[in-house]
Design a protein around this nucleic acid. Sequence first.
DNA 1: ATAAACTTTCAATAATTTTTGAAAGTTTAA
DNA 2: TTAAACTTTCAAAAATTATTGAAAGTTTAT
Lengths: 168, 168
Amino acid sequence: MELAAAKLKFIEAWGKLGSEWGINRTMAQVHALLLISPEALTTEEIMEALSISRGNANMTLRDLIGWGLIEKQHKAGERKEYFFADKDVWNISRQVAKERKKRELEPVLKVLNELSTVVGDEKDPEFKTFKKSVSDINKLALNVDKTLETMLKAEESWFWGSILKVFK
Amino acid sequence: MELAAAKLKFIEAWGKLGSEWGINRTMAQVHALLLISPEALTTEEIMEALSISRGNANMTLRDLIGWGLIEKQHKAGERKEYFFADKDVWNISRQVAKERKKRELEPVLKVLNELSTVVGDEKDPEFKTFKKSVSDINKLALNVDKTLETMLKAEESWFWGSILKVFK
DNA sequence: ATAAACTTTCAATAATTTTTGAAAGTTTAA
DNA sequence: TTAAACTTTCAAAAATTATTGAAAGTTTAT
């Protein structure tokens, strides 16, 4: 396969994966473009490469910065802003895990906590089933939360080296 | 908090979480409803409880069956179909992991494999960066895939007992 | 066979999410 | 200052996704 075709395919695949994971397609595509670009790119270049509008490019880049996946760069003597992506997949994974933990898991934990204060008749099957499900999900969520917490502190070496040992 | 209010809150929270994870809101809500219901419910009861149409209920229930999260049940002497959810969070987690692996991870692995056959000039930074990124992501994806594979085979006890030991 | 009970389908509609692009805003150089 | 170079905003439009509901389909009992 030719490089040009491969690039397009990569951008498309990353975009699709992103949209399946609640990240908008364009955002994932811009990320993909920057991931495979050796140099930082300007908004103009990104607009051009992906055929998107200036407004869209600007918002998408801002969001990617918010996710900690790309950074602005300034070149001496130039007005333009350049953008580049961290290429380290371990950093990328951690960054995504960190943001999703904060944006999604933590609010859910909060609600589950509130829900576990529910009061009712211990003889009522409706009540018992509700309590059991909420409590089980709460335990799971706490486990996931702690696991992510530890992952965020872990060294890169852990990830590449020993993840498989987990499961004896 | 009262049980009735808590139920609504749980259904809402599960629906929100679902939509953040690429599962449609209604599907997650129906799942939530069945999770906290001690008895299997009919389509009518689900339509009523969530104020959704018959068509929507039918499609959503079919999707949930496709995800392996709920099952049909027949009661002796009755024409109606009843639906109930597996309440075991470990089973739920495995089922979701299994489906997402199949639907999302595997197609991506396939593309990454194709992309690693790209040919080009080893001196070209564009080429080198592309290859490096694709190869790193490929390694990560393979790692995730193997980890999920092992998780699918693992015993429930593993999950509740030793997930935290992973990280030293 | 017929009809009642129940389920499925799908074209039309509604709701939501994403994108556009032009105008407004900001910064820098002269 | 002023104007050129560049960035941000946001209301309107487009694209996508979800939902409805009535008609068609299926199964069962008689």
